[in-house]
């Protein structure tokens, strides 16, 4: 039993590598922040394209649905490997895209962001869609019968109501996204899991990985609580009738 604790909960190993793991965990958080920001926007764009009305825009809807279906099905790891292993050889792309080193971040960081945004855009699009579709049909009909265009009805009537219905499922996606930032370690982005594995290789001890897991726990648990509160508050607002403007 002491062997078990020594392997996973060796406080000496944790202590010695605490600073190193923490600094690299910030890399995961940065990756998360950038990818989440872009995925939330990209998902909204996809959800919007998916809802476009009319016969003429059918191809747009079709392509969007195909995109969402495909990238919800493809394992992110495969995508990460395909992007990092393939994009550098696409010589028709400019050098700064093939080997991106924007804002001083190394290229695996951006390959990782790309893979996460491509996949999580598809997932968040579905969450937005669920919110949009949860708004009763009569709301759109009322808006349209008042002369509003599809876009005006979406902007002033559907989206402000739909968005109050999505914080919980969206949080689940964001938590998954945060955890999936560890996958980028396979393309040598030095983040928390990568350095923890180096410790494992060096000391034959898993405690640094445990420490990394604890960092994730520390971030994710309160996040879940915060959003529980947000949901409770937004529901209170709905019953009182809230006024939420969406640009």
């Amino acid at each position: 039993m002491s062997q078990f604790f020594n392997q996973y909960f060796n406080f000496n190993v944790m202590g010695e590598h605490f600073g190193e793991v923490l600094v690299h965990f910030l890399q995961n958080l940065l990756l998360f922040a950038v990818a989440a920001f872009l995925a939330l926007i990209w998902g909204l764009v996809l959800a919007f394209l998916r809802q476009l009305p009319g016969r003429k825009l059918m191809p747009v809807r079709f392509v969007t649905i195909a995109y969402i279906d495909v990238f919800r099905a493809v394992p992110i790891l495969i995508l990460i490997l395909m992007i990092s292993g393939g994009v550098p050889f696409l010589t028709f792309l400019p050098h700064s895209v093939r080997i991106p080193e924007w804002f001083g971040r190394p290229d695996p960081f951006w390959y990782g962001v790309a893979a996460l945004v491509i996949v999580y855009g598809a997932f968040t699009a579905e969450v937005y869609r669920a919110g949009i579709e949860a708004v009763p049909r009569g709301q759109v009909e009322a808006a349209r019968s008042l002369g509003m265009s599809h876009f005006q009805a979406m902007r002033h009537v559907v989206i402000p109501q739909g968005i109050t219905k999505i914080p919980a499922p969206m949080l689940n996606e964001l938590i998954s996204l945060l955890k999936d930032t560890t996958l980028i370690s396979v393309i040598s982005l030095s983040e928390a899991v990568l350095v923890s594995r180096e410790v494992l290789a060096e000391r034959l001890n898993s405690s640094a990985l445990t420490l990394t897991a604890v960092f994730f726990l520390i971030i994710i648990l309160p996040l879940a609580r915060v959003v529980d509160k947000l949901i409770a508050r937004s529901q209170l607002k709905i019953t009182r009738g809230s006024h939420i403007e969406v640009a």
Binding site: P136, A142, Q161, T164, G241, H243, I244
Partner: peptide, 13 residues
């Protein structure tokens, strides 16, 4: 103009 059975007022306004 049209008025509906279920009113369909905008609840957030």
């Amino acid at each position: 103009g049209m008025v509906f059975q279920q009113f369909n007022l905008f609840p957030h306004k």
